[in-house]
Simulated scan of single mutants.
Amino acid sequence: MLSKWGGNLQSKIHDLVLDCLSWDGNGKLIDIGCGNAPLSIKAAKKYSKAHVTGIDYWGGMWDFSLKVCEKNAKIEGVQDRITFQKASASDLPFENNYFDAAVSNLVFHEVQDTKDKRDVI
């Protein structure tokens, strides 16, 4: 269902997330829970003047996951405007107001270090 053979639902959801983002595309955007970076990359392609930071916890797969994200960004030609960092969605290592916009998709239920997911938001 999420793949291109299943109707590209994931890509359609990412388009919807970005279409609903009220932002001019200038500055810094964070993708919370970026996984292998499809939403981060789509944002970097849509907002050509932005720098995108994708964060995810990735657990013990950190090195592998980082390499996958960086490879995907390079394939899509946005590697110079996108960075990836290991971090928990419940404890972002950035100062308040560091980012101009934030996106996230299907992530908060996965946050393991906070019982009440409302605290994450």
Rank of each mutant, 00 (worst) to 15 (best):
V103T: 06
C20R: 07
N97A: 10
A50L: 07
M61F: 15
I30D: 01
S65F: 09
D15K: 09
P93W: 00
G27L: 04
I75M: 13
D56N: 09
E95H: 03
S48E: 13
L66K: 11
K46T: 01
S11H: 13
D119Y: 07
Q85R: 12
D31T: 00
K45N: 11
F108R: 03
E70I: 04
D24G: 02
Q79C: 09
G77F: 02
N36A: 12
D19Q: 14
Q85W: 05
H109Q: 15
K71Y: 11
I41T: 03
N36D: 15
I55V: 15
E95S: 12
K4R: 12
R118C: 11
H51V: 12
F94A: 01
H109D: 14
C20K: 09
K42A: 13
V68W: 08
K28G: 04
I82F: 01
G33W: 08
A101E: 02
N96P: 00
F99Q: 02
A50Y: 06
K4V: 12
S104G: 02
F64A: 07
L39S: 03
A43V: 05
L29R: 04
G27A: 07
G27M: 06
S11G: 14
K67I: 05
I30F: 07
V52C: 05
L9G: 08
A87Q: 08
Q79F: 09
Y57Q: 08
C34E: 09
S22N: 15
A50M: 05
I41S: 00
I82C: 07
H51E: 13
G35V: 08
G35A: 13
S22P: 05
S48N: 10
V107C: 15
E76M: 10
M61K: 13
S11C: 10
V52F: 07
V107I: 12
K67W: 09
K67H: 12
W62K: 14
Q79P: 06
A87K: 02
N105E: 11
S65V: 07
K117Y: 14
Y47F: 15
K46Q: 14
K28V: 06
A89I: 05
F84A: 07
F99C: 00
D24P: 04
A89E: 03
I41V: 14
D15N: 12
A37F: 03
A37R: 02
T114G: 10
L18C: 04
F94P: 02
L21Q: 01
K67R: 13
G35E: 11
I121W: 14
V52Y: 04
V78M: 08
V78P: 00
N72C: 10
L92M: 12
H14P: 04
K49S: 14
N105H: 11
W58T: 07
T83W: 00
Q85T: 12
V68R: 10
K67Y: 13
Y57H: 12
Q79E: 15
I75L: 14
G6Y: 02
A50K: 01
D113Y: 08
I82A: 05
Q85P: 01
L9H: 10
G60K: 07
Q112T: 09
